[in-house]
Design a protein around this nucleic acid. Structure first.
Lengths: 195, 195
DNA sequence: GCACATAAACCGTCCAGACGGTACAGTCAA
DNA sequence: TTGACTGTACCGTCTGGACGGTTTATGTGC
């Protein structure tokens, strides 16, 4: 009983209904990736998600809230992976940068593009990207700057961003084999940097 | 002959009325850069450019034509610079890749962002990016693939793209000094690749 | 164990405003 | 005369979002 109430109080405050919100955000990403950010309308999300308009607006009271949630989810997702990689590397006294780049590599989702959120937010309300920018700045400050060769670290980050954005805009001028090679080469470069 | 064709290609052939079209395209880029691609409406371009709606629609019969022209102008601008750099390098039997990267560095415009066109097109009609993608593929095939270390060349391209896109989305997590350092480092890397 | 209260989750419609685009009459310099 | 515009009025469609209604889950008093 006590456990039950504790559980029910601890578990669901962040997400009572875990799936609906996520499903709506997934639908929004799908729309952006497929149709372009200007086609990200509430109605499009309604159709894509299968919920009703009222239902979507229940979870996200307005479009700005939806966009903000998209950005937040993206930032949180990457944060978790990168922080995990970083602390794991620190535990093993291993170099941080290869671990982070590797985490960025494996963060890529197959279907919906992770960074659709960036595109959507920049289209409608560029201010929403402030949190993302702050986050990236923090990573650069924490991981790149203290590295033996900060500029090379920055180049690796930028190259990863280049890959993400070419995905994002659908300009896939890098095929899978090249991508693979670029990624392992970047990890190798980061590893050698500490040697 | 060669000079004449070059001149006629650079100066007047496509545009009888040089300034208005360019001014309208500039205004469109400004709107995208400042307000986001979803605010790129014909009326916004009208206000920003100072022309009338009839005037804007006189030059670009519909919004798609405007977007296509934005993409075309961007591609043509970079093409001119890169092709110039490449042929200059070839004349001097110098390596191509450092010249191209250097040209990309200096292509950056101070105020309006060059790649706003990409953002605007991807928002509204991702198909419009086909020509840009074809162009990039061609560069990669012509310049990067034959290089001594194609993957490193690709990394340099991707890093430059990363810089452009961070500009584009207004996530300036790279300050001017870092940018400067990254660029000269990339050129250095490309130069050493041929040694 | 049952009636009831309450809120969360979700549905479907309606509307004002924004948008792309049309139409057209007029201006003005070359 | 013509090309390059201006200015205004207008139309159909799309969009955000307000709103009121309905179902479902949870708990509470008895």
């Amino acid at each position: 009983m006590c456990i039950a109430t504790t559980m029910s109080k601890l578990m669901p405050p962040i997400e009572n209904k875990p799936n609906t919100r996520e499903a709506i955000l997934d639908a929004a990403e799908t729309v952006v990736g497929r149709d372009g950010s200007s086609r990200l309308t509430i109605d499009a999300v309604v159709v894509e998600s299968g919920y009703s308009k009222g239902g979507v607006l229940y979870h996200f009271p307005n479009k700005t809230a939806l966009l903000a949630a998209m950005v937040d989810r993206m930032v949180e997702g990457i944060t978790v992976k990168i922080d995990g990689a970083r602390s794991e590397a620190e535990d093993k006294s291993a170099p941080i940068l290869p671990a982070i780049i590797s985490a960025m590599v494996h963060h890529r989702k197959p279907d919906t593009n992770v960074s659709s959120a960036l595109l959507a937010a920049s289209a409608e309300q560029p201010e929403l990207l402030d949190s993302a920018r702050d986050y990236i700045e923090k990573i650069v400050a924490d991981a790149v700057s203290p590295a033996p060769d900060p500029i090379l670290g920055l180049i690796a980050f930028l190259a990863m961003d280049g890959l993400h954005f070419s995905d994002l805009l659908g300009l896939h001028y890098v095929d899978d084999a090249q991508r693979e090679a670029v990624q392992s080469r970047l990890i190798q470069m980061m590893t050698e940097m500490y040697a």
